Structures are given as C-alpha cells and as structure tokens.
Amino acid sequence: MQFSFYSKLLGSLALLGSVLTLQSNIAHAQANVANYPSKTVKMIVPLTPGSGADIAGRIVGKSLTEIWKQPVIVENRPGAGGLIGTGVVVNSDSDGYTLLVQSASYAANPAIYKKLPYDLKSLTDVSILGTSPYALVVSAESPYKSIKDLVDAAKAQPGNIPFASAGVGSSTHLAAEYFNQTMGIKMLHVPYKGSPEAIQETIAGRTAYYMAPLQTAIGQIQGGKVRVLGLTSATRSEIAADIPTIAEQGFPNFEIGLWVGVWAPSATPKGILQKINTDINKALQEPEVKTAYAKAGITIKLMNLAETEKFVRSEINKYSKIAKDAGIEPQ
C-alpha cells in the first residue's frame, strides 16, 4: 500500500515537472518572439551582387535595420543556380536570424534538378519583396532590331545561336526557355555566374540575348549599352514607358515576371515568421523604399504568410510546366 502511494506521488511529481517544463518552454518561446530581433539579422542572397534579389534585399534590409533597431546584413553566397546559398539557410538555426532572399529561381530550381541538396519542406515562405518584368536585351551593336529579327535568325540556325542566363536552373534561364518555346525556336544556352556577367557578355556580343531582370539592366539600358527588344510584362513599365512589351508585338498572351521572396528554416516559430512578414510589409510602404523601388522598376506586392505560400506554390508549378514543355531534362 505504501509503495503504491509513493509510486503515485512520484508519478504526480513527474507530471508536474513536465507541465512546468512545458510552461517554461512556452514562456521562453514567447519571450523570444517578443524580443525579436535582439541581434544582427543576416539575409543570405544566393546570387551575385547586383542581381535582382540582391538589389531588392539591400533596399528592404536598410529599412528593416531602422524598424528593428538592429543591423540587417546582406551576404552574397552565389553558385549552382542559388543552391549553395540556399543550403546555408537550410542548415542554419531556426531562430529568424538567418533568412534567405532569393529570386524566382527558388521556384525554378526544382524543375531543373533531379535532386536538390535540400528538401523544400526545410524552408517556409515568409514574404514577397516585389516583382518586376524581364527585359530581353541584346547588344547595342546587335543586328537584331526587333523580336522578329531575333526569331528569324534563330529559326534559320536552330540550336546554334547562344543566349545567356544567370545560371542553370535560374529564373532567367527558364524565362528565356519560355520565350524560346513560345516563339518556336531552339537556341544554345550559355549559363553565367550571375546577371552582371550575363549582361556584360551580351553587351560584348558573345551571346545573342539575355532575359535580364529590369532592375539589374536599367543602368545599361539608360546608358545605351544594350538594346531592349521587349519587356515580359503584360503592360509597359512606368520606369521604361517607351519600351514595348513582347505581348504587344504580336504575342498577346506572353507574360512572365521576376519576383523576389524571403524564406526561413521551417522550424522557425510562427510568431517570428509573422513578425518578419508584418515588418517587411511595413518597410515596403516606407517612402524611401517606394522611391528606390520605382527607380529600379520593382513593383511592390504586399502579401501575408498564407498568400505568400499560395503564390510560391503556384510559381513552382508554373516553372515545372515551362521546363517540361521546353523538353528540359532535369540534371
């Protein structure tokens, strides 16, 4: 009888200890959310400096530094179409202090690689920083003066004329493949380390064209170093109202855009994810951010966590279809 009493007492104490531990953990987690961020936040951009994601990330990061009263550092980790930098975030602590800032390449990669070095479920969608069209650019000295000129040349030499991208599996790669597919042409893909390199090679005439993010190419466009044959948006851009869209040149359904998003390790507390999303949306409405975005040709897209997740899933499906229809074999 006495043994039974002590056994029950020990069981009750163990249960009480578990409850107290749970309450302590909950309180600790709530404190972490309330105090976030309490130190430097690192944004990993898995692309080169000057890329679309890098530009948007630095603009928003500067504003978040002021909102959070903590440093927000942008760190470039390019390579393998963004896979290297993405892997850094996947393997980081799930505390909200290491975030991924990536372009639509995040959605394009699964369509190109048979096996990613990480599971998509290892990351969770946090926010969309903005969208912009691609500008199909050729060298200012290029013989191609229109979309028709480029398409006619490609049809005359199927598979021989090169086009540039910011890397295998990047969004610029699949945007170009979508263009080639729509036009019924075959061209030779030449991947580079990032957008700056792809643009320079196109300026030099070593590739026929590059599907450049508008914010990346705007300086070369305004400086007369490249010629834009068309934008990939449905309507003209405010920052480049004199440049026609590809759609208005006889391809009314042609539309594909670049976007930049933010991700965090999937085990990051929901409260921290919500705070990051809310504060990014707050930053996007700051006058300085709006002005910088306007100059770069970036359109603001305010989305909550659920809307962001829905958008990213739809983009993954879209790029998968583009790759399949283009006959791209996963590597």
Rank of each mutant, 00 (worst) to 15 (best):
P110L: 06
T98G: 07
R77V: 12
A108V: 15
A107I: 01
A80N: 14
Y106V: 07
G96H: 07
G96E: 01
G85S: 11
R77W: 09
Q102N: 15
A80D: 13
S105C: 02
V74F: 05
I73T: 10
D95Q: 05
Q70I: 08
S92H: 05
G85D: 03
S92E: 02
P71V: 12
Q102Y: 15
Y106F: 15
K114W: 10
Y97H: 13
S103E: 01
A107H: 00
V89D: 12
V90D: 04
L83M: 12
I112R: 10
N109Q: 10
T86D: 01
N91M: 08
S103P: 03
P110F: 02
A111Q: 07
E75N: 06
P110A: 02
G82I: 12
A111H: 04
P78I: 02
T98Q: 12
V101W: 11
V74L: 06
R77M: 06
V74D: 03
S105R: 04
V89G: 09
Y113S: 00
P78V: 01
S105L: 04
I84P: 08
P78Y: 07
S103I: 00
G85H: 00
I84Y: 11
N91S: 08
P71H: 13
G82Y: 14
P78L: 00
I112Y: 10
G85P: 05
Q102K: 15
A108E: 14
I73R: 07
G87L: 08
P71Y: 12
R77Q: 06
V89T: 10
V89S: 08
L99V: 04
P71F: 11
G85A: 07
K114E: 11
Q70G: 12
K114D: 03
N109L: 10
E75W: 02
P110M: 03
G96I: 04
A108T: 15
S105H: 01
I73F: 04
A80Q: 13
V72A: 01
E75L: 04
D93W: 06
G87M: 08
L100I: 14
G81T: 09
N76T: 03
Y113W: 07
I84N: 13
I84D: 11
L99M: 09
A80V: 10
K115A: 00
Y106L: 13
A107T: 05
A104L: 06
V88R: 07
V74T: 14
G79V: 04
I84H: 10
G82P: 07
K114P: 06
S94L: 04
G85F: 09
N91K: 11
